[in-house]
Design a protein around this nucleic acid. Structure first.
Lengths: 230, 230
DNA sequence: ACCACCAACCTTACGACGTAAGGCAACCAT
DNA sequence: ATGGTTGCCTTACGTCGTAAGGTTGGTGGT
């Protein structure tokens, strides 16, 4: 049939792209060999002609996303010339990384579970260190800066409290009586929520605006580093 | 026999304690219902009389560790009176949390995979917010501070680059020729490593002293918050 | 003393998972 | 034509979480 002739052979890239798409759509839990093969119109064992094992598949998936982040960084560097302040430059890179990570919420957990670090990540961090050194950072301070920034270069929405998005906002499933009990057990948190919830403009993520908080943290750390640099 | 009479019945607490011990010894990957049951001298299905499902087991495990961290915090508060500076107090709490997390390296990943947040974590964070408010923080700034501190209250050794400990230090398995190639591809990183590796005192975690870096990051953020508070 | 009851534990079985081993069909250079 | 290579499939094994139901030893009421 014509349909069969149209079908192009699999490749590592096609498999990895499908894996990322599947993880985006249904989470890493749904990313199983059989399911991925089904999405590709193929049997599970066929995947093993392009990838040696499932661990390699997962490695390839994080490698793909890391490449996406790295490409966004160098792309942004190209459009803006070399006339950027180091803080502006890193800020822009990390915010771009955040946009990508928001599309792949499973990425932090997956990256944490890998035994080896994708090579593209070294290159990406090398660029960041280069920016710091170019701005006059000592090796010592640049090193510390990397640790202090932690996962911000990857746009981590670590956000322990944000996964509440899955089950509706907090007050939806809490009865009024329980809320009173909570106010007693957690006086400071409830007071903070009460005063903060008034002037929230973006209720999509409950009462926390992830973008604003990310930028606050970023500027706090970048500001502290700038002070140490001088 | 006497041995049989000695055996005390299972309980949720005994199961959870055994689960934590097993995860500490062999990782979360080895934490399977059959294996856990075997460690307890029991069959797998017997565990379901104390826990409804494996997800509940994992929830209980993180709850156990969170309780451990919370207990360390209030215990430390008791021994030191209320005459602590807010920075000293939080610093001490977070460093204590770090010591606990170092004993449970699987905790970050596991916590990230939970759908619901353990209640003890709310109480723990409430205490932190209380400390901030008591030091004169506004609700707005206390809120931002929580986000900026991120996972530091849990002693996160997020440390993307630290899991290299599993496979020996970096230069062990890199041939000399590859190292030259790496120096070309990653000039800034290799230069940084070269100058930093000289005065490293604790080579256990490669060339990064996790404790020092953790404290640096902590003080950087606490210092930035102190400036905003005034 | 008896017996009904129940909590704690065990046995068996099912479907889904990752993957080892080998088969088959189409294509290519000779 | 032919023999090898490539790309995909079939079958099968052991392990996982867990549903369903069986066994047993101790307890309380009569």
């Amino acid at each position: 049939m014509a349909a069969k002739a149209v079908r192009q052979p699999l490749s590592r890239e096609r498999v990895l792209a499908a894996a990322v798409a599947l993880a985006d759509a249904e989470g890493v839990k749904a990313l199983t060999m059989r399911r991925l093969a089904a999405d590709l119109g193929v049997e599970a064992m066929s995947l093993y002609h392009h990838l040696p094992a499932k661990e390699a598949l997962l490695d390839g998936v994080v490698e793909t996303v890391v490449a996406e982040i790295g490409a966004a960084a160098v792309g942004g560097n190209a459009t803006n010339g070399g006339d950027e302040d180091w803080r502006t430059r890193l800020r822009r890179q990390f915010l771009a990384a955040r946009q990508i990570m928001l599309r792949h919420p499973w990425m932090p957990g997956l990256l944490g579970s890998r035994r080896t670090i994708p090579v593209g990540l070294y290159a990406y961090y090398d660029g960041i260190v280069g920016t710091l050194l170019g701005a006059g950072f000592s090796h010592r301070l640049a090193h510390r800066a990397m640790h202090a920034l932690g996962s911000l270069p990857l746009g981590f929405a670590q956000e322990i409290f944000s996964p509440s998005s899955a089950g509706g906002s907090m007050e939806d499933d809490v009865a009024e009586a329980d809320l009173a009990a909570m106010a007693e057990a957690l006086p400071h948190l409830t007071a903070m929520v009460a005063t903060e919830i008034h002037d929230v403009t973006d209720p999509t993520l409950g009462w926390c605006d992830g973008q604003t908080e990310f930028e606050f943290t970023l500027d706090l750390i970048l500001g502290g580093l700038e002070r140490l640099r001088a």
